[in-house]
């Protein structure tokens, strides 16, 4: 089997996605580290892909005291603990259509880890195919990973970057629900208000809910042709655009960042993790409804 087998999806970065078949054939490959990242904290312990380690988005990826991600030392320690070397191929998967897997991959991207993929269809596809699951935590040989400094310039956007993007007529993709986008809601449907003062969206943003990039039946990413229909014919993006994705706190939008950056190969896509919880409360910034 070829190293990567998803070229049929027509993705620009064919290495970004691997199939469950591919993962099944590389369960014991020492050059591959499989990482499960979920929203539900019980799932990994209930059973996971044999050999997979868990990366928890709150405990492992976020600074506990500052709204920010882990720093160079923290990332180096994490990678060393889960047995990843700089040349290890890291394959992410998880629940919720790989939403949290993409979020973890995005954070890893801030440290420029060279080889990363997402297992198409995520945890539920693996499970529904009747593939082996285990509760046994793998024994990993610690590495001595030396991460570079976190680089927030190319894959991450801050509020000031968004203001500059607006001035430069860049493109914004709001991946929240239509109700949130229109300002009818300041939170996800059925959820209480979590503190955004205003409802609406960042001016000029196009609304493309994140899950549109996924086949609802299989949980797999749509092929590139369908993705282009959504993001190019539908939302008017072009591959050369300077694009910023956002949602509420930057987790849903990391999924869309992955789609645009890796599956469609846009060279300039950043995820604004401050997102609406920051923008909707900021003094002196415009919104649209």
């Amino acid at each position: 089997m070829a190293l990567y087998d998803k070229a049929a999806g027509g993705y620009v970065n064919a290495e970004a996605v691997v199939s469950t078949d591919w993962v099944a054939e590389h369960l014991t490959d020492p050059a591959v580290r499989i990482v499960e990242s979920n929203e539900d904290p019980l799932l990994y312990s209930s059973g996971h892909v044999p050999g997979a380690v868990e990366v928890d988005w709150t405990r492992d990826l976020n600074d506990p005291l500052m709204r920010d991600y882990l720093n160079r030392d923290g990332f180096s320690a994490l990678m060393s603990r889960i047995g990843v070397a700089r040349d290890t191929h890291v394959v992410f998967y998880g629940d919720r259509n790989n939403w949290w897997a993409c979020y973890a991959l995005w954070v890893f991207s801030l440290f420029g880890h060279p080889r990363m993929s997402v297992m198409d269809g995520g945890r539920i596809k693996w499970s529904q195919e009747g593939r082996p699951m285990t509760q046994e935590r793998p024994v990993t040989l610690a590495t001595d990973y030396e991460a570079p400094e976190r680089d927030d310039r190319t894959e991450r956007a801050f509020r000031e970057d968004v203001l500059m993007l607006l001035a430069d007529r860049g493109r914004l993709i709001d991946v929240r629900s239509p109700g949130e986008f229109k300002g009818d809601l300041v939170h996800m449907p059925d959820f209480p208000n979590e503190g955004a003062l205003r409802g609406g969206h960042i001016p000029t943003a196009a609304n493309v809910p994140w899950a549109r990039a996924v086949d609802p039946e299989s949980g797999c990413f749509l092929p590139a042709e369908r993705l282009r229909e959504i993001y190019e014919q539908g939302a008017g993006l072009q591959s050369g655009d300077d694009v910023v994705t956002y949602c509420r706190i930057g987790e849903r939008s990391s999924h869309t960042w992955f789609v645009l950056r890796h599956l469609l190969g846009y060279p300039r896509v950043r995820n604004y993790d401050g997102s609406w919880t920051e923008w909707g409360n900021s003094v002196g910034v415009p919104i649209e409804r």
Partner: peptide, 16 residues
Amino acid sequence: LFGRELSMGKSLGLMN
């Protein structure tokens, strides 16, 4: 039961 390390969506769904 689950600790404070739940996502907003998960914690609100469970509280509901």
